[in-house]
Design a protein around this nucleic acid. Structure first.
Lengths: 343, 343
DNA sequence: TATATTTGCTTAATCGTTTAAGCAAAGGTA
DNA sequence: TACCTTTGCTTAAACGATTAAGCAAATATA
């Protein structure tokens, strides 16, 4: 019904009999405009319910004030929290975010990048899909000269900012904890080695085993995509071994959940017979029986840092990007699934 | 490093010695441009890696090709799935979506609306925050003349499109199921009556009790915000009753989880002593022990319909909006928490 | 052959804002 | 009084695309 023409700076200018340029400057508190005019302009703007046309200013200034965020999925507490914090920090500086989900698909990720570039975002903050190995699309972002910030799932070769937790050390902490519980045959259901973070967790696992003089058994180190289904399958595989492990460290909570289900279905006592540790501290780790020990990834901090890193780029107009890692310490949340001894 | 100037249609025009207008038309397959020129233009566009400047076309055409989506939160499987399907449908038609989270806060919701309007979105698809009672900001959207589509949490008074499930009938199905299990004192931990969907669930609960000639006991009908914490508190409240219920229907899965925890902690047999039913079919309902019977809300369908409804508005250039409800049948997923009898 | 229509482009205006350049008036300095 | 600076604005050109209007050449119609 209200097919109201939107108010523009020209309308304001007409009311006050000044130029549109003066209005624009008044609204931006330019020093060359008198206080009297500024006050008048702002008053009229208010009266006419003036809303600046973002498209016009974006076109003219070359800045869209939009930031693209790419995540594998939003329905994980980790990514959701990261997003929330990115949004919070950026909103305060007048930026809006466009969220896209890759659903762990490389194809979808490429589409997302195209969409974001098409929308003229001023920067992209991303966590890569599991599938992603070809970095050509990310190079495309860099070649456009807009800031690219990676978090969680990153890649050294891209030479851009990266924010994440210390995956290598997290594995150490986990193995240390399990050893303290008296575990001697610790298995690892890990992610794919080609993904940096999972590779680090695997390396950390191997080195920690060495440190505690535990045997490194190939049967106990499994790569998978960390879905719940695969967690089930791989746990079953471990149970079929002649020499079963007495602890399983799973590199993702969803897969850990699958493992837990299989253990429960086989009436295996957790943690007495087999202790279980997950990764990610998803809310459900505290809901299931027994609750699953997991690693808190400091999602809020990661989101905040990613946003601030973007803002730093914008402020400094640094076009050259280089590998700049910000690594946070992760935190082990010990729960029933690995608490053999009352500490 | 690559501070490449972006290619514009002028660049293409210069290469071919034709006008920018001709290039624009060629790219849009205008019938008044020869096939030869079209082919040449597209070739050059490809060679120069031309990417249309979305801001410019949006400004000129008055269409940003962006759709705003407002949800209470993204880290629920329901909203995440709705979003995913909205995105899927809209992307195919050349639209991108901007997702914002209200975090159930009215203030944050208003900010989101302002941000989206500022970004010149072509439409808004929203599910309202629990807190929202003042509809003034939603009226603002309507007054801008852009399509507004509500889903899940809607409001009749706004007179806009609404897509959701049949909450009233869902309650009927739940009560019917519990009666079939032999339950005679069915409690309801519901949401706030002021929110339409929770009101419908409460009305459905009351009417279904009447239908099955069960007593309607005020003690057994509780309003709350459906958080896990409140689920715990209200379940405890029910346990403290002299005359305990033999079934509890909770209007949200997170609150149902809290109820489950309290029941487990008090060693109450589920479903033998007290049967439990949740709402929303969150993945964790299938993970906890016992698994929780819940209601599937057809998130994918809702997302698809919301997107298609938006597209219909755009196509028909219908500026006048009216209350147009699309109500889907919900589906009860029976799990251990209410399965007394083997059916 | 003369006129009408179609084809294939060009010109120029436009979307709403920002911003470099310019200019008159007021105030300050010598 | 003559000159310089500052103040407070205006003018006009962008940003990159779309599009109405126009026009010449080619083709069709009478």
């Amino acid at each position: 019904m209200n097919k109201k023409k939107k108010t523009t700076i020209k309308d304001i200018a007409n009311v006050l009999n000044i130029s549109a340029a003066a209005v624009s400057k008044a609204l931006h508190d330019d020093s060359r405009i008198s206080d009297k005019t500024k006050k008048a302009v702002k008053q009229v703007a208010e009266n006419l319910n003036y809303q600046p046309n973002h498209l016009a200013s974006a076109l003219r200034s070359g800045k869209s004030k939009l930031v693209g965020v790419i995540v594998p999925r939003t329905n994980s507490s980790f990514f959701s929290s990261v997003i929330q914090n990115i949004e919070h920090v950026l909103n305060e500086k007048g930026y809006s975010i466009i969220i896209t989900q890759s659903n762990e698909s490389y194809q979808k990720e490429c589409n997302s990048i195209d969409t974001l570039l098409f929308t003229q975002v001023d920067g992209i903050i991303a966590s890569m899909a599991n599938e992603t190995v070809d970095l050509q699309y990310y190079e495309k972002i860099k070649s456009k000269g807009i800031p690219l910030i990676l978090f969680d799932r990153g890649e050294n070769n891209l030479n851009v900012d990266y924010i994440g937790i210390d995956d290598y050390n997290s594995s150490h902490i986990i193995v240390e904890h399990l050893v303290a519980q008296g575990c001697k045959r610790i298995a690892h259901i890990g992610g794919y080695k080609r993904t940096r973070i999972y590779n680090n967790r695997i390396r950390g696992y191997i080195d920690a085993l060495k440190k505690y003089h535990l045997p490194l058994d190939d049967e106990l180190l499994i790569e998978t995509n960390l879905s719940t289904e695969n967690g089930r399958a791989k746990m079953q595989q471990l149970l079929n071994l002649k020499n079963r492990p007495d602890a399983v460290y799973v590199a993702g909570d969803y897969a850990a959940l699958g493992a837990l289900q299989v253990l429960n279905e086989n009436n295996i006592k957790i943690p007495e017979e087999i202790a279980l540790v997950g990764f990610g501290n998803e809310p459900f780790t505290d809901m299931v029986t027994p609750s699953i020990t997991s690693v808190n990834q400091h999602s809020a901090e990661i989101g905040r840092l990613a946003a601030e890193t973007f803002l730093k780029h914008i402020k400094e107009k640094t076009v050259t990007q280089k590998l700049n890692k910000q690594i946070l310490d992760a935190e082990l949340i010990v729960r029933d699934s690995s608490k053999k001894k009352t500490l």
